[in-house]
Amino acid sequence: MTWNAFHHRGEILQTVIDTADLRRDGVLPLDVPGVSETFHGELDLVGALHLKWHARLSGNIERELMTQPMDLQDAIARAWAKTSVEAPGIRMIIDRYTETPTDAQMADALQRARTKEWLKLAAAAGLSSDESASSARAGEQVELKGRAAVGQPASQNIDDVVTPSLVDRIKAVLAA
């Protein structure tokens, strides 16, 4: 892939993301100009969107962990929820195509990606250090906690959650 093709693909992908965020219907915006010439089918486009989701989620997890939270599971759930708020169109597309994939290849790819994400969530939350089914279930619980945070009333936006200060965390540790 040439440098120009790489940038063109990125521009088309950003247009797809912007369109998905506007529509919020969970449908791949295949009607965006340049999509059919740039991506090799639905799986290629869903895969590119999944990579964008994963990169943003990873960044949000890192930012949450930088605050040295007292409750790792809550911090990782907040990171998941924040990512969902920041990229609603991508999340809706991933959810829709995971629930109702267009073919077996997409079903397999999205299930593997979902399991890997759950394992990452569980590891970041300090719930596991392996790739077992129980670790994936622990990560799924973290995701569900993040989903619940997004479903809260508008008055409790994820950005309104107060992270305790360093002094408050030290006090809590000393009190325990």
Results as ranks from 00 to 15, higher is better:
residue 9 R to K: 11
residue 9 R to H: 08
residue 10 G to S: 14
residue 10 G to R: 12
residue 10 G to K: 13
residue 10 G to M: 05
residue 10 G to W: 09
residue 11 E to Q: 12
residue 11 E to H: 14
residue 11 E to W: 13
residue 11 E to P: 02
residue 11 E to M: 04
residue 12 I to R: 01
residue 12 I to Y: 06
residue 12 I to Q: 09
residue 12 I to H: 00
residue 12 I to E: 05
residue 12 I to T: 14
residue 13 L to H: 03
residue 13 L to I: 10
residue 14 Q to D: 12
residue 14 Q to V: 09
residue 14 Q to M: 09
residue 15 T to V: 08
residue 15 T to L: 14
residue 15 T to R: 13
residue 15 T to M: 12
residue 15 T to G: 10
residue 16 V to L: 06
residue 16 V to F: 02
residue 16 V to W: 00
residue 16 V to Q: 03
residue 16 V to A: 01
residue 17 I to P: 06
residue 17 I to G: 13
residue 18 D to K: 12
residue 18 D to F: 07
residue 19 T to M: 09
residue 19 T to A: 14
residue 20 A to W: 03
residue 21 D to Q: 09
residue 21 D to E: 13
residue 22 L to E: 15
residue 22 L to C: 15
residue 22 L to Q: 12
residue 22 L to S: 15
residue 23 R to I: 05
residue 23 R to Y: 05
residue 23 R to P: 11
residue 23 R to H: 09
residue 24 R to L: 11
residue 24 R to Y: 01
residue 24 R to M: 07
residue 24 R to H: 06
residue 25 D to E: 08
residue 25 D to N: 13
residue 25 D to M: 05
residue 26 G to N: 01
residue 26 G to S: 08
residue 26 G to T: 04
residue 27 V to E: 13
residue 27 V to L: 12
residue 28 L to C: 04
residue 28 L to R: 03
residue 28 L to Q: 00
residue 28 L to W: 02
residue 29 P to E: 04
residue 29 P to I: 14
residue 29 P to L: 11
residue 29 P to H: 05
residue 29 P to Q: 04
residue 30 L to Q: 10
residue 30 L to H: 14
residue 30 L to R: 15
residue 31 D to K: 00
residue 31 D to T: 08
residue 31 D to P: 08
residue 32 V to K: 00
residue 32 V to R: 02
residue 32 V to F: 05
residue 32 V to S: 09
residue 32 V to Q: 03
residue 33 P to C: 01
residue 33 P to A: 12
residue 33 P to Y: 08
residue 33 P to F: 02
residue 34 G to C: 03
residue 34 G to T: 03
residue 34 G to H: 07
residue 34 G to R: 03
residue 35 V to D: 05
residue 35 V to L: 09
residue 36 S to D: 15
residue 36 S to N: 07
residue 36 S to Y: 11
residue 36 S to T: 15
residue 36 S to H: 12
residue 37 E to Q: 12
residue 37 E to F: 11
residue 37 E to L: 07
residue 38 T to Q: 04
residue 38 T to I: 10
residue 38 T to E: 07
residue 38 T to W: 01
residue 39 F to R: 06
residue 39 F to W: 00
residue 39 F to Q: 03
residue 39 F to T: 01
residue 40 H to E: 10
residue 40 H to Q: 11
residue 40 H to I: 10
residue 40 H to R: 14
residue 41 G to M: 05
residue 41 G to F: 04
residue 41 G to S: 00
residue 41 G to N: 06
residue 42 E to P: 11
residue 42 E to C: 07
residue 42 E to A: 13
residue 43 L to D: 05
residue 43 L to P: 06
residue 44 D to G: 06
residue 45 L to N: 03
residue 45 L to H: 04
residue 45 L to Q: 07
residue 45 L to E: 07
residue 45 L to S: 05
residue 46 V to K: 00
residue 46 V to L: 00
residue 46 V to Q: 00
residue 47 G to S: 14
residue 47 G to T: 12
residue 47 G to H: 01
residue 47 G to Y: 00
residue 47 G to Q: 03
residue 47 G to P: 04
